[in-house]
Simulated assay, not measured.
Amino acid sequence: MGAAMSKTIKDQTVEQLGGGSSVLVRQRREHQEMDRLMDQYLILDDLHQREHVLKQVVQLVFSHAFAEETVLWPAVRASVPDGEELTARVEEEHQQINDLVADIERLPPGEPGREEKVQRAFALIRQDIRDEEDLLLPRLQDAVDTARLRKLGTTWAAVRQTAPTHPHPVIPRRPPGNALLGVPLSVYDRVRDALGIGSSASRRGR
């Protein structure tokens, strides 16, 4: 698409990415918010404030990843020649983040080893952002037209509104299984978020 073959979406203008409703612009905006929140967490000293920011990171990362896996990665696999390989790599990163955050949510703040898991999760999230913005999303940009990017953006935003906000070991990484299991778990997550029940310690496994 245009002369910008497979150029990272990080430095492109909103117009180059297909306009404000394009899925590429929506993705980048949320990636920037993740980066901002992680940076904020790292400079805070107050434990309560840190926990509040960490909760925001988790909610954003998981709803974002669910929308990617439900809407975006199937489009990449359908339109990009090595889409299967590219999305498998990112799905593996998502799984590692899922497992780490599940561990973090089981440990009380201040518990030895918890902070190290937080740092590892943040490093994985940043790696995931780079893989998506530098490798995967430019390939989608090359493969589909602006109208398709905007349509994907609208669908992505709708799914994003109803996505789970915490890690769940039972959710598969691919449709249709993730959508079927994700909707009831999403309702559960959002009730927990509203009531301020942050821990997953009481969540049953499989």
Rank of each mutant, 00 (worst) to 15 (best):
G19A: 13
S21Y: 01
S22I: 06
V23F: 05
L24P: 12
R26T: 12
R26G: 11
R28D: 02
R28M: 05
R28P: 02
Q32P: 01
Q32L: 13
L37P: 10
L37Y: 14
L37S: 06
M38K: 12
D39T: 13
Q40V: 01
Q49D: 07
R50N: 03
E51V: 01
H52I: 00
V53R: 04
V53G: 03
K55W: 12
V57K: 04
V57D: 03
F62Q: 14
S63Y: 00
S63K: 07
H64D: 08
H64F: 07
A65N: 05
A65W: 08
F66D: 07
F66L: 00
E69T: 00
T70M: 10
L72E: 06
L72S: 12
L72G: 11
L72K: 06
W73A: 00
P74C: 01
A75L: 00
V76T: 00
R77L: 00
V80T: 07
E84K: 14
E85D: 10
T87R: 06
R89S: 15
R89A: 13
V90F: 02
E91A: 03
E93N: 11
H94D: 12
H94S: 13
Q95S: 15
Q96Y: 00
Q96R: 10
I97V: 08
N98Y: 07
N98A: 09
L100G: 10
A102L: 15
D103A: 08
L107G: 13
P108M: 12
P108A: 14
G110S: 13
G113Y: 09
R114P: 12
E115C: 00
K117L: 15
V118Y: 05
V118P: 02
Q119H: 06
R120P: 00
R120W: 03
A123K: 15
A123C: 09
L124G: 06
I125A: 04
E132K: 08
E133I: 03
D134P: 07
